[in-house]
Amino acid sequence: MKQIQAIIRPEKLEPVKEALVALGINGLTVSSVQGFGKQMGYTEVYRGVKIEARLLPKMMITTVVTDSAVAGVLEAIQAAARTGEVGDGKITVTPVENSIRIRTGETGDATLD
């Protein structure tokens, strides 16, 4: 099993979610987060005052999938989230030792269905 965590633009949440549901991924955790990468935020003038926004709004999607599903999930996220501009986001993949469904006590891949 692998945990996939994607940081994406907020406006790309629905396309990414739809792409994952189409693959049969039925468990996601979505969080509103703030951060910056190469963009380093932005600067704007509000009522004559220069305001520097260093942290940009992003969405973080986390899911755990079987090893065989990883490639498809990565491809789906990239295709749905890509705009070609700086700030499209980042995906990380980490190994998961075990998973336990609390309600039934099931463990391993069986908890991902």
Rank of each mutant, 00 (worst) to 15 (best):
P15S: 06
P15Y: 09
P15H: 11
K17S: 02
E18I: 04
L20Y: 06
L20V: 08
V21G: 03
V21I: 15
A22V: 02
A22M: 00
A22E: 14
L23A: 02
G24H: 05
I25C: 11
I25F: 00
I25N: 07
N26K: 14
N26E: 13
N26V: 09
L28P: 02
L28Q: 07
T29I: 09
T29E: 04
T29K: 06
T29D: 03
V30Q: 07
V30T: 09
S31H: 12
S31T: 12
S32I: 02
S32A: 13
V33I: 15
V33N: 05
Q34P: 00
G35W: 11
G35F: 06
F36G: 02
G37S: 07
G37T: 01
K38L: 10
K38S: 08
Q39I: 00
Q39P: 00
M40F: 01
M40R: 14
M40T: 02
G41P: 10
Y42K: 12
Y42H: 14
T43Q: 14
E44T: 13
E44G: 01
E44Y: 10
E44A: 12
V45A: 00
V45I: 11
Y46C: 00
R47Q: 11
R47M: 04
R47I: 00
G48M: 01
G48P: 05
G48W: 04
K50E: 14
I51S: 01
E52W: 10
A53V: 15
A53T: 15
R54E: 14
R54Q: 12
R54C: 01
R54M: 13
L55F: 13
L56A: 02
L56D: 01
P57G: 07
K58V: 06
M60D: 01
M60H: 00
I61H: 07
T63D: 04
T63S: 11
V64C: 07
V65Q: 03
V65N: 08
T66D: 12
T66I: 01
D67V: 06
D67F: 05
D67P: 02
S68T: 14
S68G: 12
S68C: 04
A69M: 15
V70L: 15
A71H: 10
G72Y: 12
V73D: 05
L74F: 11
L74K: 13
A76Q: 11
